[in-house]
Write a protein that binds this DNA or RNA. Structure first.
Lengths: 108, 108
DNA sequence: GCTTTCATTGGCAAAAATACCAAATATATC
DNA sequence: GATATATTTGGTATTTTTGCCAATGAAAGC
């Protein structure tokens, strides 16, 4: 690690990205998008919330660099911007597993 | 991915863990702890906030399974529960880099 | 051009998260 | 047992996030 000030700046920058994921709907969207791109309409149906709500979630994720979007016709298709999320999820799920079965880390 | 209901449950479970990280102070703590365990007092000095505030942050991270703690004497020492965070951070930092320099993922 | 469908934005009320103070608990020292 | 230090918990005011409605913008079909 570097000096404290740099570490704080880094932590702040990271928090913007982590916050953009810190919501069940957003994590669901990310999970769904690992299967391939989807338009807002499709994602809304899956998430089961208002379109405007989902659109705002998507905007936050897009601005944080988690998603990319492309407009084709009337539709806007969203996709994962960085495939390392799969690792990301793997790690999160592991933490949860550990949390349940004792307090040790088996696989990571 | 499985059926939608399962996916929603998974997303919810994941959100508990991701939310527990989604704060600059908490990410700073995690970063510091990659160097090794520290007691609440030390972490408070580094974070620069009230002890009670930090203690609550630590409690959230502990309950989410991110941290483990051990009491020795008057002190409570905290440590990372799962080393896969290093990968985690690597991924987050990559996203940020991508976000700045164009919209492509180079290394992941 | 009018209408329809898809998506985003503005605004605002409701819900959740945050941060501090005061108080309580626990351990060590005297 | 009284005191000092370290940490946690309860309570609460403040801030931030969320989610919907209403309105706007944009593309396609008629």
């Amino acid at each position: 690690m570097m000096d404290l000030e740099s570490a704080k700046n880094t932590a702040h920058d990271r928090s913007v990205i982590v916050k953009a994921m810190a919501h069940p709907t957003r994590l669901l969207v990310m999970d769904v998008l690992t299967q391939g791109e989807k338009c807002v309409n499709e994602l809304t149906n899956l998430a089961g919330c208002d379109v405007t709500t989902l659109s705002k979630h998507l905007a936050v994720m897009r601005r944080a660099g988690l998603l990319q979007c492309e407009k084709r016709g009337v539709n806007v298709f969203y996709q994962i911007a960085c495939p390392c999320f799969l690792e990301f999820f793997r790690c999160i799920d592991l933490i949860q597993t550990n949390q349940i079965h004792l307090k040790r880390c088996e696989a990571c």
